[in-house]
C-alpha cells in the first residue's frame, strides 16, 4: 500500500480544530461563572420525590435573605423551575453575548427550557429524524445545559443552583461542565425504595469527588390542613442515610398540601406561607446550606 500522509501531517491551519473549538466553549463557561461564588446541585436519582419543589423553595429562601441566587433548570425534558418560581413567560432578551434570564420569586434568576418552548404543551424536539434521535439526543442535551450555564447573563451571584432531572447518572455531565461544583444536596423520601435509588446517586457523587452537603428527607410526614398535626406518610423502618452512609441530614420536610399548592402556583411556600411547618423546615435547610458554604451559622 502506498504510504500516505496522516491527518497530523497536514498544515494545522487547514484543520477544523475541533479541540480548539471545544476549549473555547470551556473558556466561555469559565468566564461566565467567574462572577458566581458558589454552585451546587439538587438531585435525587429517583423521580417524584419533590426535588424541584425543594430547589425552588431553597432558592427563594436564600434570595429572601438577600443573597443573589440563580437557578438552572437542568431537567430539560421536564422543566418546572420557571413555573414554580413564578417567572413570567415574557420573551428573554438576547444581548451582545448572552441571554438575560427570567426573574422569579424574590428576584431569583431562572433559566429553563420551559421559557424557550413554543407553548406549555410543547415537548423538547430536536432537529433530525425523531426515530433515531436517541443516538445524538444526549450530546445535544449536554450542549444545551452548557449553553444555559455559559450563555446566560447571570451577573454577580452568591449561589447558582442546578435542579437535576431524575436519573442517577445525571450528575456526570454536570461534573464534566463544572469540575469545581461546590456540592450536591440529595433529596429522598423516607422509604426504603427511595433510599435504595438515591444511594446510587450518593455513590456516583462520591466517586466523582463531589462534596455531598447532605440529604433532605422530603414528605417526612403529612400535615393535616385542619389541625396542622403531622402524621406519617410512609412506614419508617428507622434507617436513614445519616446512620447508614454517614451523610448529614439537612432537613425533614413534611408534606403540606397548602404549601405545595402555593409553590405549584408560582408562589414558593417559604414566602407565601412562611409560618407553615414545611416553610420552617426549608428555612432550616437554607440555614444548613449557608453554614456549609459560608462556614458559619447564619
Amino acid at each position: 500500500m502506498k504510504k500516505v500522509r496522516t491527518y497530523y501531517d497536514l498544515p494545522a491551519g487547514t484543520r477544523s480544530d475541533i479541540a480548539g473549538q471545544l476549549a473555547a466553549q470551556v473558556e466561555r463557561l469559565r468566564r461566565r461563572l467567574e462572577s458566581v461564588r458558589h454552585t451546587f446541585a439538587v438531585l435525587s436519582g429517583k423521580g417524584g420525590v419533590g426535588k424541584s419543589l425543594v430547589t425552588a423553595n431553597l432558592a427563594a429562601a436564600l434570595a429572601d435573605r438577600g443573597f443573589a441566587v440563580g437557578v438552572v433548570d437542568a431537567d430539560l425534558n421536564g422543566p418546572s423551575m420557571a413555573k414554580l418560581l413564578g417567572a413570567g413567560r415574557e420573551p428573554l432578551e438576547v444581548v451582545e453575548d448572552a441571554v438575560r434570564p427570567a426573574l422569579g420569586a424574590a428576584g431569583v434568576k431562572v433559566m429553563s427550557m420551559d421559557l424557550l418552548l413554543e407553548g406549555e404543551e410543547a415537548p423538547v424536539n430536536w432537529t433530525g429524524p425523531l426515530q433515531e434521535s436517541f443516538i445524538w439526543r444526549g450530546t445535544l442535551e449536554a450542549n444545551a445545559l452548557r449553553e444555559f450555564l455559559s450563555d446566560t447573563e447571570w451577573g454577580e451571584l452568591d449561589y447558582l443552583i442546578l435542579d437535576l432531572p431524575p436519573g442517577t447518572d445525571r450528575v456526570i455531565p454536570v461534573h464534566g461542565l463544572l469540575a469545581d461544583l461546590g456540592g450536591v444536596v440529595l433529596v429522598t423520601l423516607p422509604s426504603e425504595l427511595s433510599r435504595f435509588i438515591v444511594s446510587k446517586s450518593l455513590t456516583m457523587s462520591r466517586e466523582l469527588g463531589i462534596p455531598v452537603i447532605g440529604y433532605v428527607e422530603n414528605m417526612s410526614g403529612y400535615v393535616c390542613p385542619n389541625c396542622e398535626r403531622v402524621g406519617p406518610l410512609f412506614e419508617s423502618d428507622g434507617s436513614s442515610f445519616e446512620l447508614e452512609k454517614g451523610v448529614p441530614q439537612l432537613a425533614e420536610i413534611p408534606f403540606d398540601p397548602i404549601f405545595g399548592r402555593e409553590t405549584e402556583s408560582g408562589r414558593p411556600g417559604v414566602l407565601a406561607c412562611p409560618e407553615s411547618r414545611s416553610a420552617r423546615a426549608l428555612q432550616a435547610l437554607a440555614d444548613r446550606v449557608l453554614t456549609h458554604f459560608e462556614g458559619k451559622s447564619p
Partner: peptide, 30 residues
C-alpha cells in the same frame, strides 16, 4: 456543536439550542 472546517463567525448565545431545537417558541427570544 462544532463547525467542520473551523469557525468563521463568533459563537452566538444559545447557538446550539437555537439552531437545533425544533419546538422553540416563535417569540421566546427577543
Amino acid at each position: 456543536c462544532v463547525h467542520i472546517g473551523g469557525r468563521t463567525t463568533a459563537e452566538q448565545p444559545f447557538e446550539a439550542v437555537r439552531t437545533q431545537l425544533e419546538t422553540g417558541g416563535e417569540s421566546a427570544l427577543k
